[in-house]
């Protein structure tokens, strides 16, 4: 009777809930500084231009 539960399936899912949250934490920590500057310059520029246009209209 792991953790006081009758059914091993319930013990398993209780642990899985915690582990899946930990997976999220580990993923975030592992990737903390990765993929910061992947946006292609051209697209970003295009987007900025569009934004300026909208601003003018406003």
């Amino acid at each position: 009777m792991l953790l006081g539960f009758e059914d091993p399936w319930v013990s398993l899912v209780y642990i899985l809930c915690i582990l899946s949250s930990l997976l999220c934490v580990v993923w975030g920590a592992f990737k903390w500084n990765a993929e910061a500057t992947e946006e292609p310059e051209e697209e970003v520029r295009h987007w900025a231009e569009e934004e300026d246009k909208v601003e003018e209209e406003l």
């Binding site: 999220c24 993923w27 975030g28 990737k31 903390w32 500084n33 990765a34 993929e35 910061a36």
Partner: peptide, 14 residues
């Protein structure tokens, strides 16, 4: 950027 989405994963999970 994608970095911010990765950083959001732990907060969302918890």
């Amino acid at each position: 950027s994608r970095r911010e989405i990765n950083r959001a994963v732990p907060i969302g999970g918890i």
